[in-house]
Design a protein around this nucleic acid. Sequence first.
DNA 1: AAATAGCGCTTTTTT
DNA 2: AGCGCTATTT
Length: 752
Amino acid sequence: MKDIFKDLNEEQKKAVECTDGPVMVIAGAGSGKTRVLTYRVAHLVQKGVEPFQILALTFTNRAANEMKERIISLVENQDAKNVWMGTFHSVFARLLRVDGHLLGFPSTFTIYDNDDSKSLLKTIIKELGLDIKIYNSSYVLHRISMAKSNLITAPEYLEDSELQTYDRHSQKPQIGQIYSIYQNRLFKASAMDFDDLLFFTNVLLRDFPDVLLKYQNRFRYILVDEYQDTNYSQYIIVKRLAARFENLCVVGDDAQSIYGFRGANIQNIFNFKKDYPDFQLFKLEQNYRSTKTIVSAANTVIQNNKEQIFKEIWTDNEEGSLISLLKAASDTEEGILVAHSIFENKMNKQLENSAFAILYRTNAQSRSFEESLRKLNIPYRIYGGLSFYRRKEIKDLISYFRMVVNPSDREALLRIINYPARGIGDTTMEKIEVAAGQQDQSLWEVMNQLHQNSLGINSGILHRIDDFITKINSFRVQLKNRNAFELAEHIVFSTGILKDLQEDQTPEGISRAENIQELLNAIRDFVDSPRPANEETGELSEDQSPRSLDEFLGEVSLLTDLEPEEEKKDKNKVTLMTVHSAKGLEFPYVYVVGLEENLFPSYLSMNSRAELEEERRLFYVAITRARQKLTLAYAMNRYKWGNLTMSQPSRFVDEIDQVCFDLPKKVKMNPGPAKKLTPMDSPEKPRPIIDTGDYLDISSIQIGTMVEHQRFGKGKVLAVEGAGPNKKATVHFSEAGNKQLLLRFAKLRIIE
DNA sequence: AAATAGCGCTTTTTT
DNA sequence: AGCGCTATTT
């Protein structure tokens, strides 16, 4: 057996050894927090605790994967992979798939992401006749999310005078009603949003004592990472699960709490003392990551916050180089200064690109750095922005998968009912929506009953709806006899999604087709990988059947990112990301940029001390990412929403002790003239309108007529339907494929 | 039905 | 500036 204690300092060792009873570890930045967590799990396994009796909850999938890998390499025991490790959401989604039927949810329930939630909210808001601009769907979702995170149901929301007063005050008194309808619709669609996963776990554990007991007995040892970022709902889940054995270890750092804006509650750290008076507290105060200069700068900054648990971070590391401050005239120049600095350091010190990170407050800031890095031929990778699974083409394909698994899924249905275009438009779907609302049924159910009640939809469209239903049902049949990859590939081809994307030969279009391919690759990997441990026993699955599409969907709906094959090969790139996404990471050279008042700290966080302190913690997180060298940058002028605005250096820069800084050398650099239009770029000439007057006489069209369209070129009429001004034709164009055209508008020419 | 032109709004983000 | 949604055009 490996002696795991030799890698730990005294305090870390104590935190690892103290396995029984409630434990809180307050771990400063760079103090080996992850190390303690992983070694603690390893120690438990070495002591003989069954891996499936250990539950380790993290905040991100990345953290979970990282920890899992480390533990497996640490414990020379393959059973270690049976430790229940994952995000709150993924672990409890799994639990709800097993026991959610007690609450009326099928095991195949769909998980709605924020886009799905917002689109559902939007229809509800419209149905209520409310102004979509006043009832902004993001805002409404945020309010509902806050309520759910605090375990407030819709009826409770409607009765809570404080919430009602608040909503009336902000001119949105109907949020409670929206919440109520929203919840109803989710249930009808057999769907849960992200907050529901935690909310309904709480309901399950509260109302079904035998279920609670089952999981209390299973999870004898519970560990929670990033405890400062948990919300009330998560706190209660943990409290319930740990109530029987109280072998609970939470690890966190109040100084790194940066998710208050979405409901994280630092109070959970203080509540710990009340809930478990006999708890053991360990403080990790030695920083192993950064130089003395960086640690001392971070300490002086965070001292400006009033609300914090006292601790003193120190380090044995060398003094290190001083902090540089780059003052730029403009955002463009800021990009140039940073890129040149990276180039210089890279050359002088022979460093890898991956040694550098540029951290900013908002995603929109990345552009000037991208441009300058590109000019110097320095490869970089931007994190954040739209993640893989939120891209349109991916969501479209996954919506087909979702329909196969759960046809009640309203949002999935609406996405794909007319994609690729099959001539079922908004008007038709509105009729179906109205009927569904009246009959309290899902859209799918209404569509399946159109033979009895056509809702005034004409026969051509009814036929196409039938085709759609038949298609989805044929996929459903194959769920059990084809593996996930085979079925997914079949769906991609038989729906014509790939064909549709391949018609678009713009760079964006090509990249979309590649993304579909990338998703198929991921599904192939999924099929080739073994099943996880059995939910009930924790033992490895004996089920040797191929992994199916519903299994894939169950795993994928909580993932945000997929690393494309090429990224896996070439990791030697400069990292560009927001400070938020940099939490938990470290880099030898870190550039924290855009340090201006109203940007960092953000103008939206200037109203209260609490918000400003969160910004300061964010800055604290930013500077403590650096191992060796920290560089700060700001611009005197910056383009904000299209116009140039002057700015002042951030107060956070002043909060760092002057002695930590490099001599402020004045760097002069010409950012170069902005790109001007050259005579060659003169605006495109307006296209002459071709009007031969020889357009199609609507009455003369019939199946087989050859026609020409201004944009689509030559084509053959396949079908005609409707009458008078609403007459429509389906035309097959040799270049553009099948199109439905309203003849009143489409300027077709007969080309017999 | 499908394409396009114009209007308005802009944090942070993971699940 | 840049994206998403609505209104308008074809």
